[in-house]
Structure formats: structure tokens, C-alpha cells
Amino acid sequence: MNYKLLHIFRNTPFGRETFLQSLYFCKTINAFPLAYIPRSDKFLLYFSNDAVQVDLDHSYLTSPDTAKSNAEKLFEEMGTKPMFYEPKNFTASSLPDISTNFDYLCCPRSVSDMSSKIGLGHIGPRVRRIIKHATFPVLITSPVFKPWKSISVFFGGSKNALTALTLGLKIALASGLPLDIYTLLEKQDEAYYRELIEKEGLDEPVTQLSRQWFFYEKAHFDTMLYDVPHNSLIVLGAYGHGIIKDLLLGSKMEQIQSTVMNNLLITGPHCSMSLQ
């Protein structure tokens, strides 16, 4: 399979870190990075039931003449063939439609706000909206390029978490890196979770691919977050169950993204994954 990752290139030092992160991700899991160099400060993503307009701030349009060569340099640095995405359709002359036919999308923590906020772990409203509607996982990078050497899946037992677990297994399979699973025991006990993955037919790949499965008591949530290796890619599902949680990303998710600085790979409610 040819997996593709779309990266919206920002020709700034901060954008460079994000882009290196994308390239590293693709290299590790054997995917193809496609860079999109924006020519206008907004674009549209048409999902099956929503059109999401992403407004970029001006830093995305910084020195457009050097953008392409800078991106190419970074591509070469990582030993990847440079590939660029060109939008084909335009809703209006300055409003290109970006295809949603990708397997991953790379987002900084915030698309349109100033990068100063990012240090605080803030995830911008548009990134949330993209996650909410995306049919693909979204890679949210750490502020500085940091290679990761393991994969950590946060598994809470919901439908989204199962998707995230499948995705984590897939990435472990593609990259050959060790996988750890972290579960916070809220209402159920360990056996419940083990049964759950057995029911979904994931028990075999989990035993084959994962290194360890950690269980934490509810009160030790912060310990769990600290125990996650600093150089690992965190895979998790956004959105808990329940109407109120749906409004945000899910309370756990909020806490995770504001506490951990790792690279996050988030599956939204519209993602679907299979191990094939």
C-alpha cells in the first residue's frame, strides 16, 4: 500500500521543525510525504459531511519564492524524493480545495494562531475541527523536531481507542519499533480490557507486536503520563463517549495534549482502520 501524508509547508524555522517531524514519520513507517506550499491564506477540506475551511496565518505565506527550494532541501536531508501537492480544484479563485484522499495529515498544534501559544500545549480550534471530521489520523507534532523510538498507545476501551490501537499496531508493524499500551483503569478491571481486544480479534497482533501493557489506577493518571517515554509517538483516539465530551476533544485527551509534549497521532470519530 502507498500511504500518503499531507503536510502544509510553512517556510519558517518553526515550520521546518514540523516538516522534519513529518518526514521522519513518513520515513519510519514507509509512507510518502507530500508537501503543499500554500499560495493563499486559506483552503477548504471537503469531508463527506462537512466543508472545513482552514485559515492560515501569514507565516505560511512567508517568502514564497524560497519555500519550494527550502522544502526540497529538507526532503533531500531526509533522503526522500521531493513531492509536492498541487490543488486541482478551486471553490473560488483564492480558495483551493485540498483533497481529503490522504492517509495522514500533519498539523502543528495550531494552524492559525501565533506559535507562542503552542508552547502551552494549546490545540487550535481548526485543528480540532479537522480531527473531528477527518477520515484519516492527524499527526500533531511536537514543537521541536524529535525522533521517536517507540510507540505508546493510550487505550481507554472506547470505539475510537480501538481504532487508535489498530493504528498503533499498524505503525509498529510498518516501523518495527516497540509498542507499549497504557490503560487507565476507570471502571473496569484489567480482564475487561483484555476481553475487549479479544472480541475485536486484536489479541493476537497485540501479543505479537506489543512490548508491554501497563495498567494504572485512576488516581495515577499523572504518573502514567510521566511514565510514557519522552521519545515515543503517542497514538490515541480523540473524543470520549457522551454528548458533552463530544463538544471538546474528550476530557482525557485535553489533559494529555496539554501535559505531554510528545508527537501525537490522533484518530477522530470518523477514522476507520483495519490491519490489512
Binding site: S40, K42, A51, D55, N89, T91, A92, S93, S94, L95
Partner: peptide
């Protein structure tokens, strides 16, 4: 932050595509 255009073609475009 709308793209320019007077609207009707945009609606037709959205409907057909």
C-alpha cells in the same frame, strides 16, 4: 475570510462537485 466571487457559481460548484 471568504474567497471572492458573487456566490451563485460557488453554489453551483458545490452542488455539482
Amino acid at each position: 475570510r471568504e474567497g471572492a466571487g458573487h456566490g451563485v457559481p460557488e453554489v453551483i460548484y458545490a452542488v455539482s462537485r
